[in-house]
Each structure stands twice: as structure tokens, then as C-alpha cells.
């Protein structure tokens, strides 16, 4: 079995990582209140998104104009059953915030997945094949990276229609250069490592080197970057909604709620406070989790403190 020779030469990073580092990660998680808080926050948001129907007291677009414009339940004008008040159409703010988690998480999760898939493909090709391929890919990547991100997203979003899939695709494409740059750099470093050179010397096919020897070593930095990019994407989706360029206005997304809330900011401030709080808490949780992942998965960045 000639195939096994290549495997024997490679240090088999993924399994090794799991055996050695998982306990470290768990240890770190239990002793780092920040990481624990991050995990709790993110799990809460994910569960909220998954079980929105069960958790929300009302449907996202359900409401009566008779109940409209009421503040939180603890305020004088508050209405029983509408904990965080209602908007100008009588829709329950709490329910809309709960359903809004779906849009933010969907964009964050699938956007990052698409961006990393494109970025890894481009970055690996550029880093491993080098030469003209590298030049072409790198120049496009650098071009896109030098562009103010928000402006880039705005131009594309004005062309595409307003729906969830388009938003995910836009973020997936525009964010890919960040991943491509990371992967290219890592591949350039790894291709000269002994076990890769040995595998090449033994005549291992390119796909095998890329998938078995390089990709597993990219997992650590990739997952870390994915976490941070996910929180950035949740931000940008809200921003795009805020400008009226993301999902249609009737969809309960946090950015849409803020865009609407801005119009009523002086009279019904509660319409703006809670969706923004939801964005901040989610970003906070994802960032804490990202810090933990970086510490655990990327030993070079492991901090002494």
C-alpha cells in the first residue's frame, strides 16, 4: 500500500491536535470566565434562533394597531404580555428580536462558510501553485482588500435584489479575500516544511498534498478567523439592513428593526435599544469565543498570561 507511506511521513496533525489540545481547550474554557461567558452567550443566541417559534410569545409580524407604540412592561404605559414593548404596528419587540437572531446567524454562519470555501480554494492555489496563478489571485485579493469594505458591499448590494440568499452570497464573495490572504501565507510557509517536501519527493499527487498535508494544518488559524469574521458579518448585515440594502423590510432582522427604530428614536426609543443590544451581545459572545479558539487552536499565538 504505497499510500500509507505518505501518511506515515505526515505528523497527522488533526488527530494529534485533538488528543493533545482538547484537554487544554477544556481546561482553558473552565478557567477562563471570558471564554465560558462567550460560550454561554453564543449557545443562547443559537438556541434562540433555532427555537424562535417556541420562545417568542408572538409571531414576528403579528400585532394589532390597538397595542401599538407601547413601552416596556415596567413603564407606566406598558402593556401586559409585551415585555419589551411594541413597535408602531403593534408588533411585539421581544418576539421580533428573537426571530431576528435567525437572520443574523444565518448570514454570519453561511456567509463565513462560503467566504472560507472560496478563500481556501483561492489561497491554496495561489500559495501552492505560485507563479502566474499566484500573481493573478494575489492582485485581485489585494485590490479587494484595499477597498473600504462597506463601500464594496454597498455597490454590490445595490445591484442584487433584497433577499437572504443574495446577502449571504454578497458577504461570502466580498469576505473571501481575507481568507485567501491568510491561507496563502500559511501555505507558503508550510510548503517548505520537511514532511511536505518529503511527500512531494515521494511523488504524492498535488491534491493529496493539499488535502492531507496542508489543509489539516490550516484548520486552527482558519477556525479562529472564521469566528472573528462571523461577528464582523453580523455587524455588516445589520449595517446593510440599516441602509435598506439587506433582507426585505418586513423580515424581522436586527438591522431592519434599528432602521425603523431610528425614525421613531425620539418618541419610542425602546424600538431601537433592544435590537442593538442583541447585536452587541452576540458580537461580544462570538468575540470571546474567538479569543478562546485562538488560544486553543493556534499554539503560536498562545499567550503566556
Amino acid at each position: 500500500m504505497p499510500v500509507r507511506i505518505f501518511d506515515a511521513l505526515s505528523p497527522r496533525q488533526p488527530r494529534l491536535q485533538l488528543r493533545v489540545r482538547l484537554p487544554y481547550g477544556v481546561h482553558r474554557l473552565l478557567h477562563d470566565p471570558g471564554a465560558l461567558l462567550g460560550l454561554i452567550l453564543v449557545s443562547l443566541v443559537v438556541l434562540t434562533a433555532l427555537f424562535a417559534e417556541q420562545l417568542a410569545p408572538y409571531g414576528p409580524t403579528e400585532g394589532s394597531l390597538l397595542d401599538a407604540k407601547r413601552p416596556e412592561v415596567w413603564q407606566e404605559q406598558g402593556l401586559e404580555g409585551h415585555l419589551l414593548g411594541t413597535d408602531q404596528l403593534g408588533q411585539d419587540i421581544l418576539s421580533r428580536v428573537i426571530y431576528g437572531a435567525r437572520v443574523s446567524l444565518a448570514v454570519g454562519f453561511f456567509g463565513v462558510l462560503l467566504a472560507s470555501a472560496i478563500g481556501v480554494t483561492l489561497g491554496m492555489s495561489a500559495g501552492y501553485l505560485g507563479g502566474r496563478v499566484d500573481e493573478a489571485i494575489s492582485s485581485i485579493v489585494n485590490l479587494l482588500l484595499s477597498f473600504p469594505y462597506l463601500v464594496l458591499v454597498i455597490i454590490i448590494a445595490t445591484v442584487f435584489g433584497r433577499n437572504l440568499l443574495n446577502v449571504i452570497i454578497i458577504f461570502g464573495i466580498t469576505d473571501a479575500p481575507v481568507f485567501a490572504r491568510l491561507v496563502r501565507g500559511e501555505v507558503l510557509r508550510l510548503r517548505n516544511v520537511d514532511y511536505v517536501v518529503a511527500a512531494v519527493g515521494l511523488g504524492a499527487p498535488t491534491w493529496r498534498i493539499l488535502l492531507r498535508h496542508l489543509l489539516p494544518n490550516l484548520v486552527g488559524p482558519l477556525v479562529t478567523l472564521m469566528t472573528f469574521e462571523m461577528s464582523a458579518m453580523i455587524f455588516y448585515e445589520a449595517g446593510l439592513s440599516f441602509l435598506g440594502l439587506s433582507v426585505p423590510p418586513e423580515v424581522p432582522s436586527w438591522g431592519n428593526m434599528l432602521a425603523l427604530g431610528r425614525k421613531f428614536l425620539y418618541i419610542f426609543p425602546w424600538m431601537s435599544i433592544y435590537p442593538g443590544l442583541a447585536i452587541s451581545l452576540t458580537a461580544f459572545g462570538v468575540n470571546l469565543l474567538g479569543d478562546w479558539m485562538r488560544d486553543v487552536l493556534d499554539p503560536r499565538l498562545r499567550r503566556a498570561d
Binding site: S231, A238, L258, G261, R262, S272, G276, I279, A283, N287
Partner: peptide, 14 residues
């Protein structure tokens, strides 16, 4: 990293 500028702007106004 965690507070969107447009939300902060609204809170500052409030």
C-alpha cells in the same frame, strides 16, 4: 469590536 457605530450613535442621541 462589539458595539455597532450606528447603534451607539442612537444611544448617544438618547
Amino acid at each position: 469590536q462589539t458595539i455597532p457605530s450606528f447603534w451607539l450613535a442612537m444611544i448617544l442621541i438618547l
